[in-house]
């Protein structure tokens, strides 16, 4: 039963992380990010007690809310020119499929290194790291960069939860997630400052 839940979470994360690559509407981006944190919670739960694992999802949702609230206060013009053409979509699809494939292939080897964390945990972690890096590689927009970094960190946190159960580390990682969202929000406002002035 637990394993089914874990694999469901992995499938959910494939959808959300790929969706983050394709969708350009910031509202959907925030929703997908929040769902991604839910998947992360399920995978973290494989090794951590529910109390500690829920720190991840609460911090993640708060981070998503910070980014969403900041973005909602900015003009719609801030996301102009973000639409992907058919070729762009095809490229993103191909790149995402490659990441999913690579994550699937290296999962057994990495699982051995990560003290047999479990295939779903290792696969989910690698998938988010790969998708996050892909995200960082193909965008320079502040919101996407913040989401990309948070995705990479989520993947790492899933893997790390299998080998480290320290409360201090969990707290510091939550602080870093929130800090990253706050920095993303700060940069979003700063990036929009000139656009507002020039309008």
């Amino acid at each position: 039963m637990e394993l089914t839940f874990a694999w469901t979470a992995v499938v959910l994360m494939v959808i959300t992380s790929a969706g983050l690559l394709f969708v350009r509407d910031w509202r959907w981006n925030i929703i997908l990010l929040a769902i991604q944190y839910l998947g992360m919670f399920v995978l973290t739960l494989q090794h951590w007690p529910i109390g500690m694992a829920s720190v991840k999802v609460v911090a993640g949702w708060m981070s998503a809310a910070i980014l969403g609230m900041t973005r909602s206060g900015l003009s719609e013009g801030a996301s102009a020119g973000e639409r992907l053409g058919p070729r762009g979509r095809l490229f993103h699809l191909f790149a995402a499929a490659t990441v999913v494939l690579i994550a699937a292939v290296v999962t057994p080897a990495v699982d051995t290194i990560m003290a047999d964390a479990g295939f779903p945990v290792t696969n989910g972690g690698l998938l988010l790291i790969g998708m996050g890096l892909l995200h960082l590689g193909i965008t320079a927009r502040i919101l996407q960069v913040a989401i990309g970094l948070m995705t990479v960190l989520s993947g790492f946190e899933i893997l790390y939860s299998a080998v480290e159960g320290s409360v201090l580390v969990a707290a510091l990682l939550a602080v870093i997630n929130l800090g990253l969202a706050l920095v993303g929000a700060y940069l979003l406002i700063a990036a929009n400052a000139q656009k507002t002035e020039s309008l």
């Binding site: 790291i129 960082l136 320079a140 502040i142 960069v145 970094l149 990479v152 960190l153 790492f156 893997l159 790390y160 480290e164 870093i176 990253l180 920095v183 700060y186 940069l187 406002i189 700063a190 990036a191 929009n192 400052a193 000139q194 656009k195």
Partner: peptide, 28 residues
Amino acid sequence: LTSIYRPPGRGVVRFLIYQTLAMPFILL
């Protein structure tokens, strides 16, 4: 480094990305 009244440059974003990517590697 950056002011809230001025758009951030590529350097700040790259600094944030590169330095953040260091943390998972060191912890692992």
